[in-house]
Amino acid sequence: MTLDDPTMTGPLAGEDRATAIRDHLRDAIVDRRLAPGTKLSEAEVGTLFDVSRTVVRAALQALAFEGLVRIERNRGAFVATPTPEEARQVFAARRLIEPDIARAAAERITPTQIANFRDRLHDESQLMSERGPSARRAEIRASGDFHLLLASVGGNTILLRFMEELVARSSLVIAVYGRSGASSCGHDDHANILTALELRDADQAAQLLLTHINHIEVDLDLRNTDNIPLRDALNRR
């Protein structure tokens, strides 16, 4: 679907366009192309995507509901900047639900899914050998995708939706407080978790995942980030 699809008319078209814009903005936030605190001008976003401000506003409100955007009266919308307490809450929530997701995945995983995980680990390994901000963002995104694939294998669609929000919020936290970049998750941790899944050792998978989350959180510290223009972040012409 493209935002300028001429066949899209009526209320549903507006909803579809708002969803597409939300997804574009969400990806830019998760990939850290949009830094926390970046102003999201309704007029500029509308121009970039050739839609009305009403459609943009709906997209921004959806992101605000997810906790990725902060809307301030008379000032506009901004990429959210999580506080240290909010950061702790994100990882506390992950510690509560991800071990059970790992247990469920260990019981349900198939050879095809194991192969998919191995492909993702190979991609992670390749990205770790590259340099530069774009490679770093791709590595962080690939790491988050590992956790989302795990939730998908676990088979609980409600928990998968929770994980989508938690992974996105984790990306924001890492953008603000990531100390060394290791917050993007340890490649070796992922490999060990996959080994436990392949052995169908549910308890080991759960414990490894819990340790892994602790590894991510321990690398966090206060850190400044530089904003880049909205147009460049969204890569629109």
Rank of each mutant, 00 (worst) to 15 (best):
D4A: 09
T7I: 01
M8N: 07
D16L: 11
T19E: 13
H24C: 14
P36L: 02
G37W: 09
G37E: 10
K39S: 13
L40T: 11
S41M: 07
V45A: 07
S52T: 15
L60A: 09
Q61V: 12
E66Q: 12
I71E: 14
N74E: 13
R75L: 15
F78I: 12
A80C: 01
P82R: 03
T83P: 07
F91P: 03
D100G: 09
I101L: 14
R103M: 09
A104H: 08
A106H: 02
Q113Y: 01
A115W: 00
A115M: 02
S125V: 00
Q126C: 08
L127G: 00
S129L: 12
E130C: 07
R136K: 10
E139F: 10
R141M: 08
A142T: 11
F146N: 03
L150T: 08
A151R: 01
T157P: 00
T157E: 05
E164I: 02
E165R: 15
L166E: 05
V173I: 13
V176F: 00
Y177Q: 06
G181Y: 08
G186N: 09
G186V: 02
I193A: 01
L194F: 12
L194C: 11
T195I: 03
A196L: 08
L197P: 08
E198V: 12
L199C: 06
Q207K: 07
Q207A: 12
T211Q: 12
H215K: 10
E217P: 00
D221H: 15
T225H: 11
T225S: 15
D226N: 10
I228E: 13
L230T: 10
D232Q: 15
D232L: 14
A233Q: 00
